[in-house]
């Protein structure tokens, strides 16, 4: 059996639960997965236990204290065995995947959503088509979250190995986000508003629901372009963020190709729009033809009842 290496997806110095999905992807590729955890303290690798890996390697280095592409790629390359490498598909992990592949002189395949034997499928043209490629020899593959089931069992103890990489960049200043709200790129549930919300002030109704169900608030490009108060960081779509949450609630969004490109792979889509002919309804699991003024208070009350 060939070696397959999984680089753990890290979040605030802990192993993110989606790492177990990456192990499943590695198993689908036919390898015996070694899970490599980039950490500054070995204890940060504790969360990698029982995620289905055959071995766990805590790769310990001061280089992992803040993300620097060249430092991380060098430090991981030094300790990860040769073979195909799997990473997550967050913007940072895709960056690392590309850098690590280049360091090893191999190709990188980004955003995998299916693996069958040597064939790896990823969305292209912002999800308007699927591309399947086949690779001979080792590659680096980034795998989207919410696609593979989480692996279980396997190794629970990590062996610790020291490593190092030259960090090129330095952080001068960190500016925390003004709001405590989740980022759309990280959220499992997203509620987004479009120009149909009428005014940026009305996004408060979306925020109230988001607070009830632990969702992030997103926006369409039309909303971001029209209202200065809606920042680009909220934009879901081709020139914004690509998301695939468990639940995407689109309110007052018509469903332009631009927007669909960024959210069509969401597991469940709810659309609320007063125009019954809006294209968004063709992609919705649950469509409600109504104004947001009618639908949102009812939705909020029902959700409050369930969550309370």
């Amino acid at each position: 059996m060939t070696q397959t290496i999984v680089i753990a997806e890290m979040s605030n110095n802990t192993v993110h639960a989606s790492t177990a999905e990456l192990v499943s992807a590695a198993i689908a590729l036919g390898g015996e997965p070694t899970l490599v955890v980039p950490c500054t303290e070995a204890a940060q690798a504790d969360g990698a236990a029982n995620m289905g890996a055959a071995n766990i390697l805590a790769a310990k280095s001061a280089a992992f204290s803040h993300y620097d592409a060249s430092g991380w790629a060098a430090a991981l390359d030094a300790v990860a065995p040769q073979g195909t490498v799997i990473t997550g598909a967050s913007p940072q992990s895709k960056d690392l995947a590309a850098r690590l592949a280049a360091r090893r002189g191999v190709s990188v395949i980004q955003d995998a959503i299916a693996i069958q034997g040597n064939n790896i499928t990823s969305p292209v043209y912002s999800g308007k088509a699927m591309q399947t490629v086949s690779a001979t020899g080792p590659v680096v593959v980034s795998v989207r979250s919410n696609v593979f089931a989480a692996a279980q069992g396997g190794a629970s103890e990590a062996s610790v190995v020291d490593t190092d990489g030259n960090v090129a960049t330095s952080v001068q200043e960190f500016m925390a986000r003004a709001s405590e709200r989740l980022d759309v790129a990280e959220a499992n549930i997203i509620i987004s508003g479009g120009r149909g919300m009428g005014s940026p002030d009305n996004f408060s109704h979306l925020e109230a629901i988001a607070d009830t169900i632990g969702a992030a608030v997103g926006a369409s490009r039309a909303a971001v372009d029209t209202w200065e108060a809606i920042p680009h960081s909220m934009q879901v779509g081709q020139t914004g963020k690509t998301v695939n949450p468990n639940l995407y609630i689109a309110v007052g969004i018509s469903g332009a190709i631009q927007h669909l490109a960024g959210m069509r792979s969401s597991k469940y889509i709810v659309a609320i729009n007063k125009d019954a002919d809006a294209p968004i309804f063709q992609h919705a699991d649950y469509g409600i033809v109504a104004t947001w003024e009618e639908a949102l208070p009812v939705l909020h009350e029902s959700l409050k009842g369930m969550m309370g």
């Binding site: 191999v106 308007k128 088509a129 069509r264 309804f281 919705a284 699991d285 649950y286 033809v289 009618e294």
Partner: peptide, 22 residues
């Protein structure tokens, strides 16, 4: 060493449930 095997359109989503009124 990586080559394209095929392109395909994304699978069509089965029709969802639709409702009238808030």
């Amino acid at each position: 060493t990586v080559s394209i095997v095929s392109h395909a359109l994304p699978p069509a989503k089965p029709a969802g449930k639709s409702y009238e009124g808030g």
